[in-house]
């Protein structure tokens, strides 16, 4: 097994003590990501049913975190019916591990994305009706994130901007 192999373990509130020096960097999204996992937003998201994982390397260092949650949105009226969707509320890699390791095969960002897509399938299989879409929010200027998501078959939903941050939404049509 490669020394770059990540492990994934479900995050709990108690793990926050180990995140005192965890930082996704000084960009706006990096700071938001750090605050999300170290503050209360991660707990609210878990309360809403999200799973959150901490990823560690073989030296037991925390490399990053990822999350996956259900949402029920409604189709526009007059339909108004519910659509069950999966989302990645937030994911982040500690700045020391961004772009690491240099080789693509074991790149942490890819291991994490692969894991989250796997978990989305596990989640979908538990539903009465399979879930078709996995969504995520991305800052329009977050080039590394957009590039990463595109590599994992996410496509930008045109004409959608959310919140004051003007975030974009990307969609991935889950495999059958």
């Amino acid at each position: 097994m490669s020394k770059h192999q990540l492990s994934a373990d479900l995050f709990t509130e108690a793990d926050q003590q180990q995140l005192a020096s965890f930082s996704c960097g000084d960009t706006v999204v990096g700071r938001a990501c750090t605050e999300w996992i170290r503050g209360s937003d991660v707990l609210d998201s878990m309360q809403r049913g999200s799973g959150v994982w901490l990823y560690r390397n073989s030296d037991d260092e925390i490399v990053g975190f990822g999350s996956l949650g259900p949402i029920r949105w409604r189709w526009p009226l007059p339909d108004g019916d519910y659509a069950k969707l999966a989302i990645i509320p937030m994911l982040g890699i500690d700045e020391r591990f961004q772009g690491q390791p240099p080789g693509k095969e074991w790149r942490y960002s890819r291991q994490i994305m692969n894991h989250l897509i796997y978990e989305a399938h596990v989640f979908s299989a538990m539903q009465k009706k399979p879930v078709e879409w996995l969504l995520l929010l991305v800052h329009p200027e977050n080039k590394p994130a957009i590039k990463l998501y595109e590599e994992f078959d996410f496509v930008m939903i045109p004409d959608v901007r959310r919140g004051a941050a003007n975030s974009c939404v990307m969609k991935h049509r889950l495999a059958e």
Binding site: G39, S40, D41, L43, D44, Q47, R48
Partner: peptide
């Protein structure tokens, strides 16, 4: 506001 940061 089902969000602690918002309530605070």
């Amino acid at each position: 506001i089902p969000r602690l940061a918002g309530r605070a």
